[in-house]
Amino acid sequence: MSDPKPLLVVDDLKMHFPIYKGALLRREVARVRAVDGVSFEIYPGETLGLVGESGCGKSTTGRALLQLYRPTGGKVVFDGVELTALKGDKALFPYRRHMQMIFQDPYACLNPRMTVGDIIAEPLRTHGLTPDKGAMMEQVQALMVRCGLNPQYVRRYPHEFSGGQRQRIGIARALATSPRFIVCDEPISALDVSIQAQIMNLLQDLQQEMGLTYLFIAHDLAAVRHISDRIAVMYLGKVVEIADYASLYANPRHPYTRALISAVPIPDPEIELTRERIVLEGDVPSPINPPTGCRFHTRCPARRAHPEIADRCVNEVPLLQGDDHRVACHLYDIAEPRDRAA
């Protein structure tokens, strides 16, 4: 993206959740470092993909951006306004309509007691965007049409719709306030394969028409690659690599990104036969007590191959560095990084 002024700037974002023990003498015994120092920026009109395994903090990042959780550290700047400096819900309220969210579970994110019309109209009412009832109904039905729903179903309840249709209702609701930025948190992972493509196409069409900016969170790397302009890879609360989509997949640099990409199966038996797979050992460590230094060092295949950096990986936290293609790995601190990575 050549546009020099980002819509959203995230600087050293931290989201720690305290764990308490004891009923009377409640004291903090530990902290879940769900997001621990994440920085990136999102430019107007682009889609930034955020990938990682479960528990890596990608959803928490999305929610902390929208101030659904108040971050415990760092800054979030939306269109020049530092949201993290605003105190209280009242101060935040005028900005909320510009930042919306689409949720993963289309069954849980809609109130079963509200009609589809009420669900989509709620943000309009909350933000006082259409005072006139007739105009509101028109607007709701227009949103339904835009999202591929039959406007005659405006008085139906969520349970009368299939998963894919419910996701369309969720999208219509997110669009109601004409937002500029939408966090899409795993919007397709609960849907059937043939429906996933429909929803992805809808999201892309809406982006083009309305000039939307997306943060697209998913664990499905193929889907993220398909829809994103740039992609950030997270591991255990940190961004380990960020680059434009083509460069990230053609030339992944961080050992974790490489393993992640090699693990995704490709629907073609001939390619699958010849592909080399980097199978990582073990599970993701706990974010309560993350490994020292580079958080990936306990599972890193590259560290074993490069004993000269092995100590640094344990002791030193690698910084995210580079120009367009940024990576946080000690392999690239040293000369001729490309040869080293091979």
Partner: peptide, 25 residues
């Protein structure tokens, strides 16, 4: 054929539009 074309592939070269299967299951 529709299923194969509707899934994004990691090895696709450019961003193309997915060919979705219309309608509902």
């Amino acid at each position: 054929d529709g299923l194969l074309k509707s899934v994004p592939r990691l090895d696709e070269m450019e961003h193309t539009r997915l060919q979705s299967i219309r309608g509902l299951p």
